[in-house]
Design a protein around this nucleic acid. Structure first.
Length: 220
DNA sequence: CGGCCGATCAGCT
DNA sequence: GCTGATCGGCCGA
């Protein structure tokens, strides 16, 4: 269980750009407080950086700005929640200056608090690590919906982040991002960060098909 | 275990 | 009209 003194992550934590935030979010705690007060939470074990208008995998590629992706242009610490494939939603954390569309997609959590409640979101029984493995799955387990799009994660009482556990560089890997084969050369850039060997990292055998590289130590 | 494919619809063109 | 920052079931090896 987390200490009751857990520190809330502040605006300045998020406002560092997507590559640095993707690294720094690993091990931090994502918290959802349900209407009845129950806490659901997990430690982040997989992220992807979306690096701006030039990034051909980003919803903001070539400066696209529509009602759907408007939250990407908001201040750092804003949630960008979008729907995909007609049946899922995914959560990003916005991390640039105002009007600069950069964000980090949260792709995997190690479930921590409220595991029994998370299980209720799925029709069939499954082990804890498969409650929050993948960007859409973790939103389903954590009851994150499009109603949270545009929410300020720095001030919200229902969805926010807390200081978690440090992850040492040797156990971190970078790979290309998942599901963006349409993005040309951008599909190959190592903008996905993961905790090596963690069971809640998405993809087959926990890694997907992507070839892994050691984490870039210059990115903190 | 790995590969294929259907579900299902918001959002854009 | 087409596509997607996904998931899970089914099938063959």
């Amino acid at each position: 269980m987390p200490p009751t003194t857990a520190r809330r992550l502040t605006r300045s934590f998020f406002a560092i750009g997507s590559e640095r935030l993707a690294r720094r979010l690993l091990g931090q705690r994502l918290v959802r407080v349900l209407p009845d007060g129950e806490r659901l939470s997990g430690l982040i074990v997989e992220t992807e950086a979306y690096v701006g208008p030039k990034d051909q995998a980003s919803h903001a590629r070539n400066g696209r700005r529509t009602p759907r992706n408007e939250a990407m242009y908001a201040q750092a610490g804003t949630a960008y929640v979008y729907s995909i494939y007609g049946m899922h939603v995914c959560l990003n954390i916005v991390c640039g200056r105002l009007d600069e569309p950069v964000a980090v997609l949260v792709r995997g959590l190690e479930p921590s608090e409220g595991i029994e409640r998370m299980k209720e979101a799925f029709p069939a029984p499954r082990p804890p690590h498969e409650l929050t493995r993948g960007p859409a799955m973790l939103c389903k387990a954590m009851r994150i919906t499009k109603a949270h799009n545009g929410l300020d994660l720095v001030n919200s009482g229902e969805l926010f982040l807390e200081e978690g556990r440090a992850i040492a560089n040797p156990s971190i890997r970078r790979t290309p991002r998942i599901g963006i084969d349409y993005a040309g050369g951008w599909a190959l850039r190592p903008l996905r960060w993961l905790v090596a060997g963690h069971p809640s990292v998405s993809g087959k055998r926990g890694y997907g098909k992507a070839k892994m590289e050691p984490a870039d130590r210059s990115i903190r």
